[in-house]
C-alpha cells in the first residue's frame, strides 16, 4: 500500500522535472534580454571599463546564450546561484535566509484558508433551502471580489489604524529576539521555550495570514458547497437516509469524503495564486520574506536573485499541483483505472 502510494507520488514528481527545466530556460532567456549588464551590476560603480570587461569574460557573458545557460545550470545543480548584485553576497545565502519566513506565512495562510473555507462551506450548506444560504452565497461572492492585497490594506486600515489591535509591520516586536535554529520563527520560539516571543510572532503574523487566507477561502466555500449539493443528489445518500442515519452522520460519515475531492484539486491548482499573493502581502506588511526580497530585486535589477526566487515560486507551484493531483487520485478510486 505504502509502496503503491510512493510510486504514484514519484511518477508525478518525475513528470514535473521537464516542465521545470523549460521554466528555467525561459526565465534565464527572458532575464538576459533585459537591458541590464550583470557584470556592471556586480561591480562597484567606480569600476573601470577594463575591469567590467574582465568580469564579463569571467562570468561568461561574451559567450552564446546557451553556453551561459549551461554555466548557470551547472552552478545551480551544485547549489551556486551566482552573486546578488545588491547584497554582494551569494544569492543562495540571501534567498535561503528569507525562505523560512515565507514558508511559515504561506503554510499558516493555507491552514487558515482551508479551515475557514471548509467551515464556511459546511455552514452555508447546512443552511440550505433557507434565506441564510442565499445570504451566505452573496457574502461569498462579495469577498471573492476582494483580492489579497486589498484585504491586506483593509485589515491594516481597520485593525491596524482605526482599532489598533494588530501590529502591521515586520515579524516580531522590536527588541525581541529568538535564536535562529530552523528559521521558522514560531517553531524557534517554541523550541527555546520563549512563549512571549511565540505570541508576539503569532500577533505579528496574524494580519498577513488573515489577508492571504481570507482571500482564498471564499473559493473553497463555493466549491465545497456546490460539491456537497451534487453529492447529496446521489442515491447512496438517500440510501443512507433510509438506513436511518442522522443528518450529521450522513454529512461527516458519507458525503464529506466524496465532496472534498474538488476542494483538494482546487487547493492544489490554486496554490500558485496563494503563494504569489505572499509577494504583495509581504511587501505591504514589511514582512521580511521572499516576496519583499523579490520586489526589491526587481527594482534594482538584481538578476540572480530574481531568477532564484522566480524558480522557487515555480517549483513550489508545480510541486503542489502534482501533490494535489496524486492526492485526488488516491482519494478517488474511479480515477485509478485511467
Amino acid at each position: 500500500m505504502i509502496i503503491a502510494i510512493l510510486r504514484i507520488l514519484a511518477r508525478r514528481l518525475l513528470a514535473i522535472i521537464p516542465v521545470f527545466v523549460v521554466v528555467t530556460i525561459l526565465v534565464f532567456g527572458a532575464l538576459r534580454i533585459l537591458p541590464v549588464d550583470p557584470a556592471q551590476m556586480s561591480l562597484p560603480p567606480s569600476a573601470t571599463i577594463e575591469q567590467v570587461e574582465a568580469k564579463r569574460e569571467a562570468m561568461g557573458l561574451n559567450r552564446p546564450i546557451w553556453e551561459q545557460y549551461t554555466i548557470w545550470a551547472k552552478g545551480a545543480v551544485a547549489g551556486d546561484l551566482g552573486e546578488s548584485s545588491q547584497y554582494r553576497m551569494s544569492t543562495a545565502a540571501v534567498v535561503l535566509d528569507r525562505l523560512p519566513a515565507t514558508i511559515e506565512l504561506v503554510i499558516c495562510a493555507l491552514v487558515f484558508a482551508v479551515g475557514v473555507g471548509v467551515g464556511g462551506g459546511l455552514l452555508v450548506f447546512s443552511a440550505r433551502d433557507t434565506v441564510l444560504e442565499t445570504v451566505g452565497l452573496v457574502v461569498i461572492s462579495a469577498v471573492m471580489a476582494l483580492p489579497d492585497f486589498l484585504l491586506a490594506l483593509l485589515f491594516i486600515l481597520v485593525l491596524g489604524v482605526l482599532m489598533p489591535i494588530f501590529p502591521v509591520n515586520g515579524r516580531l516586536e522590536p527588541g525581541m529576539q529568538v535564536p535562529t535554529q530552523t528559521g521558522f520563527l514560531l517553531i524557534d520560539a517554541l523550541l527555546t521555550g520563549d512563549f512571549r516571543a511565540f505570541f508576539s510572532a503569532l500577533h505579528y503574523i496574524a494580519l498577513p495570514v488573515m489577508a492571504l487566507g481570507l482571500a482564498f477561502s471564499p473559493t473553497i466555500m463555493r466549491v465545497l458547497h456546490a460539491s456537497l449539493v451534487n453529492t447529496y443528489q446521489q442515491s447512496y445518500i438517500l440510501q443512507a437516509r433510509l438506513r436511518g442515519l442522522s443528518g450529521r452522520e450522513i454529512l461527516f460519515g458519507q458525503a464529506l469524503k466524496n465532496a472534498m475531492l474538488p476542494v483538494v484539486i482546487l487547493v492544489g491548482t490554486q496554490f500558485g495564486g496563494l503563494f504569489g499573493g505572499t509577494l504583495l502581502v509581504e511587501m505591504i506588511f514589511s514582512f521580511p520574506g521572499l516576496g519583499n526580497l523579490m520586489v526589491k530585486a526587481m527594482q534594482t535589477s538584481d538578476l540572480s536573485v530574481i531568477m532564484a526566487i522566480s524558480l522557487i515560486y515555480c517549483a513550489t507551484t508545480l510541486l503542489f499541483n502534482s501533490l494535489a493531483d496524486a492526492l485526488a487520485y488516491l482519494l478517488n478510486p474511479r480515477l485509478r483505472n485511467g
Binding site: 516542465v19 521545470f20 500558485g272 495564486g273 504569489g276 499541483n321
Partner: peptide, 22 residues
C-alpha cells in the same frame, strides 16, 4: 497543452511583474 502547463507554473502575479520588469 505543455506550453500552458509551463505558463501555469508561474504564480500570475510573479509572472506579470517579471514581464513588466522586462
Amino acid at each position: 497543452s505543455r506550453t500552458v502547463e509551463v505558463w501555469l507554473s508561474f504564480p500570475p502575479v510573479v509572472l506579470s511583474m517579471l514581464l513588466i520588469t522586462g
